[in-house]
Design a protein around this nucleic acid. Structure first.
Length: 205
DNA sequence: GCGACAG
DNA sequence: ATCTTGTCGC
C-alpha cells in the first residue's frame, strides 16, 4: 500500500487548503471525470457559461498507480491534470472528495491546490463523517468535530451527493454553487457531461 | 479479529 | 470504475 508517508504528505498539504471564497464572480464552470477500460483511462473536462457548453477537452492515458481508497489522487490527478490544465474556468467541479476525506485532502483539494483555482469535490458516497438523518435539501457532514462537507439531495428520490471544499471556496458556497449547477441529473451538469464524454470517447476508439 | 473503503 | 437484463417510474 502507501504507508504512513502518504498520510503525512496529505496531512501536511491539507494545511494549505483555503476555505474562504477567493473569487469575485463565477461565470465559467468546469467539471472533470474519468472512465476506464482495462488499463486505459479516458478523461473529459467540460466547461459551461450560462448553461451553454463552451469547451470540451478529452485525454486518453494510462493510470500509473492502482486505485487505493483515500489515495485516489495518486491515481487520477496525473490524468485529469492533462485535461484540466487546458480548460480555464472560475470554478472547477471534481468528481471525488475534497475535505470530506480521512486527512482532509481528497482529489479535489489536491487539484485545487495544484492549479490554485476555486475547486469543489462532488462524490456519490461518503468516505468519512456522520450526519443527522433527518434533513431537507441538504445537511452538513461532520468528521472529527467539524463540518468537512455536506450531503446534498439534488434530485428527489435519489441518494444525496457528497459536496466538500476542494480549495479557495467556503463550504456554504460550495453547496450553493453545486445546487445552482445541477440541472436534470444527480451531479452538477458539467460533471455529468464530462462523465458522458469520457465514456463516449472510450467506447469510440 | 471484522467490516468499511471516493472512482 | 467495470462486468450486465430487465424493469419500475416520471
Amino acid at each position: 500500500m502507501i504507508g504512513k508517508g502518504g498520510e503525512r504528505f496529505q496531512h501536511l498539504l491539507s494545511e494549505y487548503v483555503r476555505e474562504e471564497d477567493c473569487f469575485e464572480k463565477v461565470v465559467t464552470l468546469a467539471g472533470v471525470d474519468v472512465s476506464y477500460k482495462g488499463d486505459i483511462a479516458s478523461v473529459a473536462c467540460v466547461a459551461m457559461e450560462e448553461g451553454v457548453v463552451t469547451q470540451e477537452v478529452t485525454w486518453i492515458g494510462q493510470p500509473s498507480f492502482p486505485y487505493v481508497s483515500s489515495f485516489f489522487a495518486l491515481r487520477e490527478f496525473p490524468l485529469i491534470y492533462e485535461a484540466v490544465r487546458r480548460v480555464p474556468c472560475d470554478l472547477l467541479f471534481v468528481h471525488g472528495h475534497g475535505r470530506a476525506h480521512p486527512r482532509k485532502f481528497g482529489l479535489a483539494c489536491h487539484t485545487g491546490l495544484y492549479f490554485q483555482r476555486p475547486t469543489v469535490g462532488v462524490a456519490g458516497r461518503i468516505l468519512v463523517g456522520e450526519f443527522d438523518n433527518s434533513y431537507g435539501d441538504w445537511t452538513y457532514l461532520h468528521f472529527q468535530n467539524e463540518a468537512v462537507g455536506a450531503l446534498v439531495r439534488t434530485q428527489e428520490k435519489m441518494n444525496p451527493i457528497v459536496v466538500s471544499v476542494g480549495h479557495m471556496i467556503s463550504l456554504k458556497s460550495a453547496v450553493d454553487y453545486t445546487r445552482l449547477s445541477v440541472m436534470a441529473h444527480r451531479f452538477p451538469e458539467v460533471v455529468h457531461l464530462a462523465h458522458l464524454l469520457s465514456r463516449k470517447t472510450l467506447d469510440s476508439r
